[in-house]
């Protein structure tokens, strides 16, 4: 039996560097993993981005620590469906994804007058 509530541990989560995201996710895609979604949380100096993949109901995560306000490659070239969630994280946390095919410029949910990223206190969205 597979658990449906999985505590994130070292067993199911690989820590990777920001520049490895695309190669690592491509490797997972070649193994037949499905992209589920991405999650993010604010840490002291960085934003922790978790990539969730699943295969036969089993979940596998990739963890990336992105320094606040910095750039990271978009995995939309590997999993095209990732553009929506990348836009969301860009808007909420100020993580800049490089090369999203459909970029809402941080205005997917919010209006133009919103200047700050709601979940990340330091990042300023529009300069």
């Amino acid at each position: 039996m597979i658990d449906s509530a999985v505590v994130v541990t070292e067993e199911n989560t690989a820590e990777i560097r920001p520049d490895e995201v695309i190669t690592q996710s491509r490797a997972l895609k070649d193994e037949g993993f499905r992209f589920v979604t991405m999650s993010s949380a604010e840490l002291a100096e960085s934003v922790c981005v978790l990539y969730h993949f699943d295969k036969d109901l089993e979940i596998r995560n990739l963890r990336v620590d992105v320094p606040k306000g910095s750039k990271i490659g978009s995995i939309a070239t590997v999993y095209s469906c990732a553009f929506l969630v990348e836009n969301e994280i860009k808007e909420h946390f100020g993580v800049d994804f490089d090369g999203i095919p459909l970029d809402f410029q941080g205005m997917m949910y919010n209006d133009e007058e919103v200047q700050r990223t709601p979940f990340c206190n330091i990042g300023i969205k529009r300069v």
């Binding site: 449906s4 509530a5 999985v6 505590v7 994130v8 589920v36 979604t37 999650s39 949380a41 978790l50 969730h52 979940i59 995560n61």
Partner: peptide, 20 residues
């Protein structure tokens, strides 16, 4: 304490909760 990924099947599909 800790991080968890919880998934459940809804009428529309799977819902994922990430709690920290």
């Amino acid at each position: 304490t800790g991080e968890v990924v919880s998934r459940v099947e809804q009428p529309r599909g799977e819902v994922l909760y990430y709690l920290r």
